[in-house]
Write a protein that binds this DNA or RNA. Structure first.
Lengths: 216, 216
DNA sequence: TGTAATGTTTACCAATCGGTCAAATTATCC
DNA sequence: GGATAATTTGACCGATTGGTAAACATTACA
């Protein structure tokens, strides 16, 4: 008798590891474009190259697949912020945070879109994670930024909105990719647009945070 | 015999105007949360408070409803950018553009989310509008900004990415509203967050664009 | 190599999907 | 007030949805 999801053996089979990976990969393809409600198990099964019941053998419901995916993505999504170092140099920390977030937008656009889709729908599946781990981490980094500002290392600013603006500007290049390409035109839609964005954003944020000297 | 959508009379009935308005309002509610694929005619019909066939009497297909909605939203979405005045003062023009966009995020979050949903899905229904009218308008304003920079009125910067960053930061407060509220916590989730955002963003962009004098 | 656990497939289900149709109801205008 | 056009509804359709049952195939391990 088949017992899905290794309930009996505790240890996961080689096949389980492989297939679950393939499924989550396919699920990411589909969910990131159509959102939870707009995606179907059949679509995912087709992308994964296996039958629907086979897929449901590994993840018993559509919700289960989505949850597994969200958990994984949320973790990597927060990586750059976690790397934000209180002991580093403010300017270079912000610079590399922007760079890291832009690299994620370039290298993992599906993950970014999955997350964006979830937010647009009111975060029905991750509200707890937002209020818990996410808020805690942000609060922690906000304190760092505040300390920097009080020490006169950077200009005073609202740290929450600073973080929001870095999130939104960087993720924009993943989530609104079609729009960016359409506006830039085919001649500027190569991968170079990420370098242009990095240059622009670093200038924007670093200059914006520099302590302003005697007015020009 | 009933001829849908006033094919015969040319002029639209009072009832037609009213009902189409109610339907589009309901459709905005639903589409903005679940996207096109994830929304159902039944949902919209329920929100609109009428039967499904009745709804389909005014809009023959789900696509027709979505298109009518997109056309309307795209127009108002571009209003602030259209208002961007080449003859105005650069600093105050950018300031009021940011303010206008933030007001839209506050007052029309569903419209912003509808648009974001469409972008996430690869803009299957509006790619032409992006490449055509949108790109033209942006190109026009990019020239304005470029002229300002060349005249030494503002710092040099990539005008395209400047516009992208204003779009993304302002729309963030509509599209990622749940996240913003979760991170700010219940005590800062009142309408005041838009004022805080406005203050922060105006400072960020205006300072970032000020010609920098002798270094501080 | 045998066998028990694991993995896969075919056939199927009830619910929901987008959409149609004809009949019933209501508004409009002379 | 009656005819005519406009509106609304309930019953229905085939396709698709998320998910199940059980037979079948494969793997792992003694």
């Amino acid at each position: 008798m088949a017992i899905p999801r290794a309930a009996k053996t505790q240890r996961r089979t080689r096949i389980q590891e492989e297939k679950e990976e393939i499924i989550l990969e396919a699920a990411l393809d589909v969910f990131s474009v159509s959102g939870f409600r707009g995606s179907t198990i059949d679509q995912i099964a087709e992308v994964a190259g296996m039958s629907k019941p086979n897929l449901l053998y590994y993840f018993r419901t559509k919700e289960a697949m989505h949850r597994a995916l969200i958990d994984r993505v949320l973790f990597t999504w927060l990586e750059p912020l976690r790397a934000f170092d209180a002991n580093g140099n403010p300017e270079s920390e912000i610079r590399s945070y922007i760079r890291r977030k832009l690299e994620m937008a370039r290298d993992f656009p599906r993950e970014s879109r999955l997350f964006a889709n979830e937010m647009l729908q009111g975060a029905p599946h991750v509200e707890d994670e937002l209020r818990g781990p996410l808020k805690s981490l942000v609060d922690e980094k906000v304190e760092v930024i505040r300390t920097w500002a009080q020490a006169g290392k950077i200009a005073k600013c609202d740290p929450y909105h600073l973080i929001f603006s870095i999130w939104s500007t960087t993720q924009h290049y993943a989530d609104f990719d079609v729009q960016v390409r359409a506006v830039l035109g085919p001649e500027h839609s190569g991968e170079g647009r990420f370098e242009d964005a990095a240059r622009y954003l670093e200038q924007l944020f670093v200059d914006g945070l520099r302590i302003r000297g005697p007015r020009a």
